[in-house]
Amino acid sequence: MRQTTDGPAGRNGEPPVRILLVEDDETIRKSVGMALERYGYAVSAAPDGLSGLEAFRDADAEPDLLILDVMLPHLDGIGLCRRIRETSQAPVLMMSARGDSLDVVAGLEAGADDYVVKPVDTTVLLARIRTLLRRATFAAGLAAAPHAADAGADSPADGDVLVFRDLSVDTRGLEVRAGGRPVPLTPTELRVLLEFVAAPGIVLERQTLLRKVWDYGWDGDSRVVDLTVQRLRKKIGADHIETVRGFGYKFRR
């Protein structure tokens, strides 16, 4: 994931942010694509899941963000998201025609970072895209920051690596290991984990995580938190994150 800016895409001599849009409805595909291009994004589009997967694999460079409709012919958006997650941690935004709970849950379980409901409100869509890109840029920026090892040290500087039993989190190099093995995390999963390790033993409410990680106000959908935590548990070990019923989650020391 290359670093991007919060401003209009492609300004200041930087290449435009690349977005892959997979949507079978031609009217929606064209209208959303044109709206994004007006804001400077470079949009490539596909009309079904299989052609979307082919476009993703054949692209000269990995897209900076993907927008996938849930209901796609040949390969639905859920299956497409799973296939993408086999090789990529790029931000994924799902579009659901009904806002159906099953669609939302299935998309997030498959590895999506967020969702919007059709008909798509352009203002909401742009806000979600910018948030996902900022999150990815944050992760890329920290990972690219000068590290103690670059200065000749044999290990990260003191305080960079936080250890919780079998889990270690390098907060500068953004490397996560469980049982000594590297754990690949999406930018969203990583941001949630960083919030947890910064406050071990403290209960973090869902709305707090929505505000800090997803940039949502108080009307955000807490399901995105629950499903992201569920995915995170599967990757780092369920015993690290405790559910505090009626409140939120607590990271165990």
Rank of each mutant, 00 (worst) to 15 (best):
Y115I: 01
R134Q: 15
E109Y: 00
V17I: 15
A97L: 13
G201T: 07
G49Q: 10
F251N: 02
K30G: 00
A145T: 09
G79L: 11
R181M: 10
V225K: 04
R128L: 02
A90P: 06
Y249C: 00
S31L: 12
G77V: 02
E37N: 01
I129C: 04
T228G: 01
P200D: 07
G7V: 08
G159V: 00
A42K: 14
T122E: 13
T186L: 01
A148H: 07
T4F: 03
L21V: 04
S155G: 01
V116G: 03
D6G: 15
E175P: 02
A198D: 10
D64A: 10
Q207G: 14
D166V: 08
E205R: 13
V244F: 04
A45S: 15
G40V: 10
A238F: 05
S222W: 03
G180W: 15
Y39N: 14
V120K: 05
D69W: 11
V105M: 09
M1K: 12
V105P: 04
T123S: 13
P200C: 10
R165P: 04
Y41A: 12
V104I: 15
L80P: 05
L132A: 13
D24K: 06
I67V: 14
E109C: 04
E195D: 11
A127C: 06
V43M: 06
S31A: 11
L227M: 14
L142F: 09
T131W: 04
T131R: 11
L193H: 11
L72W: 09
Y115M: 04
L185C: 10
A55M: 13
P73A: 05
H147A: 12
V229L: 05
G13T: 11
A238T: 08
G173Y: 10
R85H: 11
Y39W: 04
A9T: 09
L80W: 03
M34R: 13
G40I: 10
L50W: 06
T87E: 11
L108K: 08
D114V: 01
K234S: 12
E23D: 09
R82E: 13
V176F: 04
T122P: 12
D76T: 07
K235G: 04
R83V: 03
P63M: 09
D24P: 04
P63F: 08
E37A: 09
M34P: 01
A46C: 15
D58I: 03
L102R: 14
G10W: 08
E26H: 11
I67H: 01
G237H: 06
G180K: 12
V183H: 07
D25R: 12
S96A: 05
G49R: 05
D69Y: 07
R181T: 08
G79K: 05
A153G: 02
K118N: 08
R172A: 05
L142K: 05
V163Y: 02
G52N: 15
